[in-house]
Computed example of a mutant assay.
Amino acid sequence: MARVGWAQVGAGGHVARRTSAWWERLVAAREGRAPQRLVHAVLEVAVDGAVRSVDMAPTWGRSPGARRVVVTGPVGSRLLAWCPLFRYELRVVDAPAPPGHVLHVSDELRLPGGVLDDLLLVPPLTWGRDEARVGDMWTSNSVVSWLMERHGVTSVGPPAGHRAPGWDAGRRVARR
């Protein structure tokens, strides 16, 4: 069993919420459309009775806890990746708490039990960049959509009126 939940970007902090809203206004103006609310995809997978979630976050400032780091990658620029401030880690977290400010949760999705093992195959692309040249930047949303696309789940997407930056990048990279 698996589900994708959608949480508001920056739900837990003023800085992320304000900078994301500012960034979305700029992107919307460049694309000639109205700004939308930004959301973050949270994938939860039940394996052998335990619920685990896929998380992408900075490598710094995190306590070890019950998590398994699967992939690390650069943030913003590969040239800065030597510094922990400019690296992310993709990890599997045990016993997740529900994401704050959940807007929508998908129906149960049929994914194989080994879907989390596929995280080892996620390309460590630079967060916030379009290194794959697919017209969308790589983000944590890209990882979730990459997994969904690899397993034939195409019915999941951001809630109406919301945008998940990077969602299309994951789908397009997975199709290659």
Rank of each mutant, 00 (worst) to 15 (best):
G5M: 15
G5L: 13
A11R: 15
A11M: 11
A11F: 06
G12A: 15
G12W: 06
G13T: 14
H14M: 09
A21Q: 12
A21K: 11
W23V: 10
P35W: 03
R37W: 08
V39C: 11
H40C: 07
L43K: 07
E44S: 08
G49Q: 09
A57Y: 04
G61M: 03
P64A: 14
R67I: 00
R67Y: 01
V71I: 04
L79Y: 07
L80C: 00
W82V: 14
P84H: 05
P84G: 03
L85V: 07
R87C: 08
R87E: 05
V92I: 15
P96E: 07
A97W: 04
H101F: 04
H101E: 15
V102A: 02
V102M: 02
V105N: 00
S106Y: 12
L109F: 08
L121T: 15
P123S: 13
L125V: 07
T126N: 00
E131P: 04
E131V: 01
A132R: 04
G135C: 14
D136C: 10
W138D: 02
N141D: 03
V143C: 02
M148K: 00
M148N: 08
E149P: 10
H151C: 06
G152F: 13
T154R: 15
G157Y: 04
P159C: 04
H162F: 12
A169M: 01
A174T: 02
